[in-house]
């Protein structure tokens, strides 16, 4: 009898481990390049600025990837991501609504940490509702979820546009700077609280990975194996809400990045075990953002935005996945 892993398991983690090692190396190279390439002027200042950017991108890359993998497990599909279900457009809507009702000036004066806290709470509420309506009640057809997601996303975006039009144009410009943050202007306080959030959430959810593997087998198998499917799925969705808040607060919606890195991670690792898919997806997300941003700003002179490239590549991949799923 052929035994696979050290404990005689049928699952061979070698491929997954190789992927983790290679991607860690790749990430190190990307960070090193980003930090040191073509340094000019005050070294301290440049390094600090770049370091902040790198940290921001790493947080976003990891949060987007992790939330997508968890969302896939919770909904038993590999196509939908939080961003496709309208999570990040909701976050933008919440911010815009707050600015509208409080007034832009008052809104921008609120401590960024407090603001972030409230926004996260609202997102948690949305995740709970989504769970109640859609995901908690047995297994839904993926296509129904896609449809609902597209509708929710469009609705949130349209509402955001509506509210923005109702805001004074001058104030709107100020608001837009804040709402659509980019890596160059990341707020330091926000960066710190985001890092704390991601670290905390990751530490709390790491021990759930074994049970999440069982959840991935489906509700009935999970129940049979003694895993409280409902509780784990609702917990996973709450984690998703926090992670999406972090990534959206830092850079705004990054459509399709999560879909791309999560699915690439399943293919690279050849498994669905969270112990491997989460780190690999996270590393992929970080490499894509940091490496992509580096290439873009050093060689293409910001001719285009990274998010556009990601959306383009991710969109094609999304169609490919839908096509493959339909032909199964």
């Amino acid at each position: 009898m052929v035994f696979g892993g050290p404990a005689g398991t049928g699952f061979r983690p070698r491929r997954a481990r190789t992927a983790v090692a290679c991607l860690t190396l790749l990430l190190a190279v990307a960070i090193a390049m980003f930090m040191t390439y073509d340094l000019k002027g005050s070294l301290d200042y440049a390094l600090e600025l770049r370091g902040r950017k790198v940290l921001g991108m790493a947080l976003v890359g990891f949060a987007v990837a992790y939330s997508s993998v968890l969302f896939h497990t919770a909904t038993h599909n590999r196509i939908l991501t939080p961003s496709l279900m309208g999570f990040d457009s909701l976050y933008v809507l919440i911010q815009t609504l707050a600015a509208y009702f409080l007034g832009t000036a008052a809104f921008l004066q609120i401590d960024v940490r407090l603001r972030f806290g409230f926004e996260v709470l609202a997102m948690l509420g949305f995740a709970a509702l989504l769970y109640r309506w859609l995901i908690g009640r047995g297994e839904r057809d993926v296509y129904v979820l896609v449809l609902v997601g597209v509708i929710l996303g469009t609705m949130f975006t349209s509402l955001t546009e509506l509210v923005m039009r109702m805001i004074d144009p001058n104030e709107f410009t100020r608001l837009q700077d804040r709402l659509f943050a980019n890596f160059s202007t990341v707020n330091q306080d926000l960066l710190v609280i985001s890092a704390v959030c991601v670290a905390l959430v990751t530490a709390l959810s790491w021990p759930l990975f074994g049970r999440l593997d069982v959840v991935a087998l489906g509700r009935e198998q999970a129940t049979n194996l003694g895993v409280d499917h409902e509780r784990l799925v609702s917990r996973a969705l709450l984690i998703v809400a926090i992670l999406v808040s972090v990534s959206t607060a830092l850079v705004g919606p990054v459509a399709f990045l999560g879909l791309l890195v999560a699915n690439l991670s399943y293919q690279l690792t050849g498994t669905f075990r969270h112990r491997y898919t989460v780190p690999v997806a996270g590393l992929l997300g970080m490499v894509a953002l940091i490496g992509g941003q580096f290439v873009l700003q050093e060689f293409l002179n910001f001719q285009t935005r990274l998010s556009i490239i990601i959306s383009f590549a991710g969109g094609i991949y999304f169609i490919f996945l839908l096509y493959r799923e339909a032909n199964r």
Partner: peptide, 14 residues
């Protein structure tokens, strides 16, 4: 039906 890719041995191990 299992949505994820899994070998027979892996499944039995669960």
């Amino acid at each position: 039906q299992v949505a994820v890719r899994i070998t027979v041995r892996e499944l039995v191990e669960f």
